[in-house]
């Protein structure tokens, strides 16, 4: 796309401002509709649209790495997570409980006013910050050569701030463990039993099956590609993991159960692998007399790419486990199946 007329068309500041303004209004509107919706299903659908529009905003902000993550996660995985849990709620629990006019008015004012103040303060402070202080960006650009990767975001994530990334991987793992820990088990469980999936499984849709059969391998390929390309272009371990997990979610909603089950032993090992690989890389550096998580310049590229590979697989396993939810509690022997 390099010809003259096209570039003048694209560069026109008025056109871009108008586009940004429209995008911002649309995003704010979907958020408003989602937040004030009384039906959970409607709110979730609007949230998915919100995520897609937000991905466009990230592109406009020159952050394609974030845009990829937002599209795959904000719009895809989080939406699936919400929908999954909706299926577990009882029918009448998926709308906001009714309340009197006085109650709702009180709520609107008591919450609305402080919130408007908080938002206003955030905007004020953020706009005040604008005077350009020389940021850390210069440092990143100057030292990027030492990391062996040409995507600065990947350089920050896997080298300069790798502690953050290590902790991020650990947080995701902890979320899976905590989710598994919430499974009610055994006779200690009292209270009204709710049959989880009350709706019968819909019949398999041949067209959907046809489509998913062709899409899934392609999407998996995209996931691998995102990992591989992450060192030099937008992409990376997390985006790759999100795409792979989305493929799993797609297989799940179209009724094609994926093997092995998300909580099988190999999958559990894979979930831990990311944290283990990261920590052992750090410890290896310590043993070699360097700093924890340091990446020596000569091997930085290879280490980053392989570490990202392990991370991608491990994060994908964690996300898949989160989408699939905790395994069913084991049946007590006394209980009728």
């Amino acid at each position: 796309m390099s010809t003259l007329a096209m570039s003048t068309l694209a560069m026109s500041p008025l056109a871009t401002t108008a586009f940004d303004g429209m995008l911002a209004v649309l995003i704010a509107w979907t958020a408003w509709q989602s937040v004030t919706s009384r039906e959970v299903f409607r709110a979730v659908m609007l949230f998915v649209v919100f995520g897609l529009l937000l991905a466009l905003a990230w592109l406009r902000l020159g952050a394609p790495d974030v845009a990829l993550a937002e599209a795959a996660v904000g719009a895809g995985l989080t939406g699936v997570l919400f929908l999954e849990s909706l299926g577990h709620l009882r029918r009448n629990k998926t709308v906001e409980p009714p309340e009197t006019v006085a109650q709702s008015r009180l709520r609107r004012w008591a919450v609305g006013l402080p919130v408007v103040v908080a938002g206003g303060l955030l905007a004020m402070v953020a706009l005040r910050l604008e005077p350009r202080v020389p940021g850390i960006a210069g440092l990143v650009v100057r030292h990027q050569g030492e990391t062996g990767v040409s995507n600065p975001v990947t350089a920050v994530l896997l080298d300069f701030r790798s502690t953050d990334t290590l902790l991020e991987v650990v947080v995701l793992l902890l979320a899976v463990i905590a989710t598994y820990g919430l499974v009610p088990h055994g006779p200690a469980h009292h209270g009204p039993r709710v049959r989880p999936p009350a709706t019968p499984r819909p019949p398999r849709q041949p067209v959907l099956v046809w489509f998913v059969r062709r899409l899934a391998p392609l999407a998996l390929l995209v996931g691998v590609y995102l990992w591989w390309v992450g060192s030099s272009a937008p992409g990376g371990a997390f985006q790759a993991a999100a795409v792979v997990a989305a493929v799993f979610a797609l297989l799940r909603v179209s009724g094609m159960e994926a093997a092995p089950p998300p909580n099988a032993r190999p999958m559990r090992l894979l979930m831990v692998a990311g944290s283990v690989a990261f920590v052992s890389q750090g410890l290896a550096m310590l043993a070699a007399g360097r700093v924890f998580l340091d990446l020596p310049e000569t091997v930085a590229y290879g280490l980053i790419v392989s570490l990202e590979g392990v991370l991608a697989a491990s994060l994908a396993a964690c996300l898949i486990a989160l989408v699939a939810g905790a395994p069913r509690p084991p049946r007590q022997s006394g209980e009728r199946p």
Partner: peptide
């Protein structure tokens, strides 16, 4: 700036 981008990804 790549730094806030990385922070936001996390």
């Amino acid at each position: 700036d790549p730094l806030p981008q990385a922070l936001v990804l996390t």
